[in-house]
Simulated scan of single mutants.
Amino acid sequence: MQQQREYEDTGVEVDGGRLAVRRWPGRPGAGTLLAVHGIASNGLAWTRVAGELDGVEVIAPDLRGRGLSRDVAGPASMARHADDLRAVLDHFAVERAVLAGHSMGGFVACVAARRDPLRYSRLVLVDGGLGFPVPEGADIDAVLHAVIGPAMRKLEMTFEDRAAYHAFWAGHPAFAELRGPDVEAYLDRDLTGAEPELRSACRAAAIREDAEDELRNPEVFAAIHELTVPAEMLWAERGLQDEPVGLYAPDVVAASGLEAEGVALHFVPGENHYSIVLGLSGARTVAAHVRDAVAASPVARA
């Protein structure tokens, strides 16, 4: 049974509004993890990882345009999210933290670490951060539908109640084994509106803006290759829809040059793109790497 940790929900002022943040307080001197979710997700994706990090302060914002940060105004991009992360650290008087990012959050983390290397002691990238550009002229919506599938279709749907939304995800092949109150709370945070017309809290414009930046910006592609802080990347065996080959095929990882550049690479067998953070075994694996990163980092608060 995973430990249930005390938490607090708060807001942090950023350009365009108030960013919603879930924070699990830690023990003095035990270090801080700043955790960044994926393109159509929210901060509660990190709940199970936080549950494995007793004593470590874990701070997980809903990125602008998602979850309870849906109404934060202004365009989205990896650089804009990096600015928001800096504001979050300042709000909680954290001078330096371990930075983790899942999926698109990995790209945000790499850009943030390149922009503010003194604020981050180490990076833990989880099935994200390594770019693969899309063909010139490809329609971003079509690419997103092909890659993230149901996570994109949900933006076009309404749901009569929370149970219907949970059932929608229960039918997702990568969610087949993902159950429990933590997963339900994560899904509930992605709902807005009122029954019988609930819809995803993800703002479609923010998803598209981030996808354009993540998939077409050379500076975003380069960030992982230009890091000046220690970094590691965990990559899942299986894909976004539980395909046998993950988001990063073994040959892609081998050809990336990351290992030669000093990024430690860790293959995570048996997990897919979602279960690596939302599943109990995946969360334990990620937390073990985070725990090591925190232990190797000096504790710094302003």
Results as ranks from 00 to 15, higher is better:
D71W: 07
L191E: 05
H225I: 06
G257H: 12
L227R: 13
Y274V: 01
V36Y: 09
R291K: 13
V72P: 08
R291H: 15
D90W: 04
N272G: 01
V253C: 03
A60D: 03
R96W: 05
E237Q: 14
L278A: 04
V98I: 08
Q2H: 00
T32E: 13
G257T: 08
P25E: 09
P218K: 09
V147D: 04
E214R: 14
F159L: 13
G171P: 09
S103A: 08
R115K: 14
G74T: 11
R80W: 00
R119Q: 12
I207F: 03
E177H: 15
R27D: 15
V290R: 14
G128Q: 05
G137L: 05
N217F: 07
D83N: 06
R203T: 03
L19T: 06
W46N: 04
E156R: 14
D210I: 00
L191R: 07
A170K: 14
G180C: 14
P117C: 08
A296D: 15
I207S: 00
R208F: 02
Q2E: 06
R86D: 08
V290G: 14
R80Q: 13
A174I: 01
V56I: 15
F175Y: 15
I148L: 05
A302N: 12
G51Q: 06
R162W: 02
F221Q: 12
A254G: 06
R23F: 03
R216Q: 15
D116I: 03
V58C: 11
V220Q: 05
S275M: 02
P244I: 00
D15I: 05
L234C: 07
P269Q: 01
T47Q: 10
H91I: 02
D9L: 10
R153S: 14
E261V: 01
P135M: 00
D141P: 04
D84P: 11
P28R: 14
A113H: 10
L85A: 05
R70I: 02
R5E: 04
A151G: 09
E156D: 15
V58W: 08
M104I: 00
E212T: 08
T10S: 15
A87P: 04
A35Y: 13
L155C: 12
G17T: 10
S103C: 10
S121F: 07
W235Y: 15
S77F: 11
R284H: 07
A255F: 11
M152F: 13
E214C: 13
Y120P: 12
G137E: 06
A30T: 14
M78H: 12
V21R: 07
E52I: 01
I148N: 03
V253G: 03
V124S: 09
E214L: 14
R189D: 11
Y186A: 10
L258F: 09
